[in-house]
Design a binder for these strands. Sequence first.
DNA 1: CAAAAAGATGCAAAAGCTTCCCATTTTATT
DNA 2: AATAAAATGGGAAGCTTTTGCATCTTTTTG
Lengths: 159, 159
Amino acid sequence: MQPGGTNRQVDRGRRVGVDKTDIKQAGLKVTLPRVKILEILEASGKGEGPRHLRAEDVYRRLLERGEEIGLATVYRVLTQFVEAGLVCRHNFEGGQSVFELDRGAHHDHLVCMKCGQVVEFMDEAIESRQEAIAAEHGFTLEDHTLVIHGFCPSCQAPG
Amino acid sequence: MQPGGTNRQVDRGRRVGVDKTDIKQAGLKVTLPRVKILEILEASGKGEGPRHLRAEDVYRRLLERGEEIGLATVYRVLTQFVEAGLVCRHNFEGGQSVFELDRGAHHDHLVCMKCGQVVEFMDEAIESRQEAIAAEHGFTLEDHTLVIHGFCPSCQAPG
DNA sequence: CAAAAAGATGCAAAAGCTTCCCATTTTATT
DNA sequence: AATAAAATGGGAAGCTTTTGCATCTTTTTG
């Protein structure tokens, strides 16, 4: 549910950070696993590795921090966060989902086919054409997925 | 590898049909499983159900036609056909891949979130913006995935 | 056209990701 | 503090997809 939706950040504009309050407002109890997972997501993309993490990555980082949180819990919590609009889930190729904190601003992705680097972008022209296309076909537009696959500057280098 | 590529139909323009010749030209032996799978794909979207089939769907249709072809073979053959440029694979949400005959014309998809109906579309404006975006970020554009999720006309109906 | 070589198939087992079950523990409520 | 409600952890289970390997087909060669 990228465009539209009924969650906080969409109503109040850009989100700057998330905390326990967001968990509570989502109707979820404030538990240690939830707080820690939110911390991991918040740290990602801010110098602490890539912004987009697979459930497995979140799980590993928790272990590294000494938090013994079960993988099943990670999956459950991430799903709940997505439903609450705190987190975005993307299904890139390969059958795995990646998660990132929802900063309130919709964006699409450019993914390097070699190193996996992910670059975000947003293009108004593309966004509005999509609305027009959905309308032309009588569809409502609830969400969309746009991923451009190519080779990033480094991976095009000779050698 | 939707845009570009080195396969027949891209070189010769729109494909009208496929046959054993295509299998041979792909460097694959002309075997019964391959021929039958190609037939299933060709029949799809031409009145015979939806054009986009999961491996499991192809397998089931083969069984219905009395062909005892293993599921593993279906997966193997579909993958080979994709590599040969005869078939396109799309990774819609849900972790499952769907396949369709490559008719040589690139297109994107509109998928109904309720009934799963798939509508194809093609928009030049979106295509060219994507090239511009990839270029802006120094990426080469090898391929892309654009899926618009919404509710089709029937699924928006009251009740 | 038969024999040999190369490649494909089928089945079952294995993988990889994600969800489900349920007894136990934690959080929120009264 | 006691009670009710919800969440967790660990493993089993579910799905889709891939792999290993003996057997069978297709293609090549003589």
